[in-house]
Protein backbone atom coordinates (compact mmCIF):
# COMPACT_ATOMS: atom_id res chain seq x y z
CA UNK A 1 0.00 0.00 0.00
CA UNK A 2 1.35 3.39 -0.97
CA UNK A 3 2.01 6.06 1.61
CA UNK A 4 1.24 9.73 1.10
CA UNK A 5 4.41 11.56 2.00
CA UNK A 6 3.02 15.03 1.33
CA UNK A 7 2.28 17.46 4.18
CA UNK A 8 -1.38 18.06 5.07
CA UNK A 9 -1.27 21.68 4.02
CA UNK A 10 0.77 23.82 1.68
CA UNK A 11 1.64 27.30 2.75
CA UNK A 12 0.02 29.76 0.36
CA UNK A 13 2.34 32.58 -0.54
CA UNK A 14 0.48 35.80 0.07
CA UNK A 15 2.61 38.05 -2.11
CA UNK A 16 1.41 39.34 -5.45
CA UNK A 17 3.33 37.94 -8.40
CA UNK A 18 5.44 40.52 -10.29
CA UNK A 19 3.67 39.63 -13.53
CA UNK A 20 0.29 40.35 -11.89
CA UNK A 21 1.49 43.77 -10.82
CA UNK A 22 2.77 44.45 -14.34
CA UNK A 23 -0.56 43.42 -15.87
CA UNK A 24 -2.42 45.74 -13.51
CA UNK A 25 -0.16 48.60 -14.53
CA UNK A 26 -0.54 47.75 -18.21
CA UNK A 27 -4.29 48.01 -17.78
CA UNK A 28 -3.95 51.26 -15.80
CA UNK A 29 -2.01 52.89 -18.65
CA UNK A 30 -4.86 52.15 -21.06
CA UNK A 31 -7.37 53.67 -18.64
CA UNK A 32 -5.23 56.75 -18.17
CA UNK A 33 -4.80 57.46 -21.89
CA UNK A 34 -8.29 56.39 -23.02
CA UNK A 35 -6.60 53.43 -24.69
CA UNK A 36 -4.70 55.66 -27.11
CA UNK A 37 -1.63 54.13 -25.52
CA UNK A 38 -1.95 50.75 -23.88
CA UNK A 39 0.49 48.14 -22.65
CA UNK A 40 0.79 44.40 -22.40
CA UNK A 41 3.02 41.90 -20.69
CA UNK A 42 4.69 39.24 -22.83
CA UNK A 43 6.28 36.09 -21.53
CA UNK A 44 9.69 35.98 -23.13
CA UNK A 45 10.78 32.76 -24.74
CA UNK A 46 14.43 33.11 -23.95
CA UNK A 47 16.23 34.13 -20.82
CA UNK A 48 17.96 37.43 -20.25
CA UNK A 49 19.97 35.95 -17.44
CA UNK A 50 19.48 32.71 -15.62
CA UNK A 51 15.95 33.44 -14.44
CA UNK A 52 13.36 30.92 -15.67
CA UNK A 53 10.50 33.45 -15.65
CA UNK A 54 11.06 36.43 -17.92
CA UNK A 55 8.42 38.98 -18.94
CA UNK A 56 8.57 42.10 -21.10
CA UNK A 57 6.51 45.23 -20.54
CA UNK A 58 5.48 46.42 -23.99
CA UNK A 59 3.80 49.75 -24.70
CA UNK A 60 1.38 49.66 -27.62
CA UNK A 61 -0.09 52.34 -29.86
CA UNK A 62 -2.97 50.70 -31.74
CA UNK A 63 -3.56 53.69 -34.04
CA UNK A 64 0.08 53.62 -35.14
CA UNK A 65 0.38 49.84 -35.16
CA UNK A 66 3.43 50.41 -32.99
CA UNK A 67 5.04 48.67 -30.00
CA UNK A 68 7.84 49.71 -27.69
CA UNK A 69 9.49 47.38 -25.19
CA UNK A 70 10.12 49.51 -22.12
CA UNK A 71 11.79 46.95 -19.85
CA UNK A 72 11.82 43.29 -18.85
CA UNK A 73 11.78 41.44 -15.57
CA UNK A 74 13.14 38.06 -14.57
CA UNK A 75 12.69 35.96 -11.46
CA UNK A 76 12.99 32.50 -10.02
CA UNK A 77 10.12 30.22 -8.98
CA UNK A 78 9.90 32.12 -5.68
CA UNK A 79 9.08 35.39 -7.49
CA UNK A 80 11.21 37.65 -5.26
CA UNK A 81 13.86 38.91 -5.59
CA UNK A 82 12.96 40.09 -9.08
CA UNK A 83 15.47 41.59 -11.51
CA UNK A 84 14.31 44.52 -13.61
CA UNK A 85 16.29 44.67 -16.85
CA UNK A 86 16.54 48.23 -18.09
CA UNK A 87 17.39 49.46 -21.54
CA UNK A 88 20.38 51.75 -21.71
CA UNK A 89 18.30 54.95 -21.75
CA UNK A 90 16.42 53.95 -18.61
CA UNK A 91 19.60 52.63 -17.10
CA UNK A 92 21.11 56.10 -17.32
CA UNK A 93 18.44 57.31 -14.92
CA UNK A 94 19.32 54.60 -12.40
CA UNK A 95 23.08 54.87 -12.72
CA UNK A 96 23.77 55.53 -9.07
CA UNK A 97 22.16 52.18 -8.22
CA UNK A 98 23.75 49.99 -10.86
CA UNK A 99 27.23 49.96 -12.26
CA UNK A 100 27.79 50.13 -15.99
CA UNK A 101 28.45 46.41 -16.23
CA UNK A 102 24.96 45.45 -15.06
CA UNK A 103 21.77 46.18 -16.86
CA UNK A 104 19.32 45.49 -14.06
CA UNK A 105 18.13 46.66 -10.68
CA UNK A 106 16.91 44.15 -8.14
CA UNK A 107 13.79 44.38 -6.00
CA UNK A 108 13.91 42.05 -3.02
CA UNK A 109 10.18 42.15 -2.30
CA UNK A 110 6.84 43.37 -3.59
CA UNK A 111 7.16 46.75 -1.91
CA UNK A 112 10.53 47.46 -3.52
CA UNK A 113 9.25 46.23 -6.88
CA UNK A 114 6.37 48.71 -6.75
CA UNK A 115 8.74 51.55 -5.85
CA UNK A 116 10.97 50.73 -8.81
CA UNK A 117 8.00 50.48 -11.17
CA UNK A 118 6.76 53.87 -10.08
CA UNK A 119 10.18 55.34 -10.79
CA UNK A 120 10.38 53.66 -14.19
CA UNK A 121 6.91 54.85 -15.21
CA UNK A 122 7.76 58.40 -14.07
CA UNK A 123 11.19 58.40 -15.69
CA UNK A 124 12.03 60.94 -18.36
CA UNK A 125 12.35 58.16 -20.92
CA UNK A 126 8.89 56.67 -20.23
CA UNK A 127 7.19 60.05 -20.13
CA UNK A 128 8.91 61.08 -23.38
CA UNK A 129 8.03 57.87 -25.23
CA UNK A 130 4.39 57.87 -24.14
CA UNK A 131 4.11 61.60 -24.88
CA UNK A 132 5.48 61.06 -28.40
CA UNK A 133 3.11 58.18 -29.02
CA UNK A 134 0.13 60.20 -27.80
CA UNK A 135 1.06 63.13 -30.04
CA UNK A 136 1.57 60.95 -33.10
CA UNK A 137 -1.53 58.86 -32.45
CA UNK A 138 -3.64 62.01 -32.42
CA UNK A 139 -2.27 62.94 -35.84
CA UNK A 140 -2.74 59.45 -37.28
Amino acid sequence: MSVDLWPNEFERIEVKAPVTILREQASALGDKTKNIVSARVDKSRSALGEEPFVYSFVIEAPALNYEYELFSIGHDIEMYPVKIFLGSDLKDEFLHEIDKFHSYVQADNEEEFIIYLKRIFSSEKSVRVIGSILAQSERA
Binding site: N65, Y66, E67, Y68, E69, S88, D89, K125
Partner: peptide
Amino acid sequence: APVYENDR
Protein backbone atom coordinates in the same frame (compact mmCIF):
# COMPACT_ATOMS: atom_id res chain seq x y z
CA ALA B 1 6.73 53.75 -40.12
CA PRO B 2 8.03 52.10 -36.94
CA VAL B 3 6.29 48.88 -35.91
CA TYR B 4 8.45 47.72 -33.00
CA GLU B 5 11.20 49.34 -30.99
CA ASN B 6 13.27 48.94 -27.91
CA ASP B 7 16.03 51.23 -26.76
CA ARG B 8 18.57 49.73 -29.18
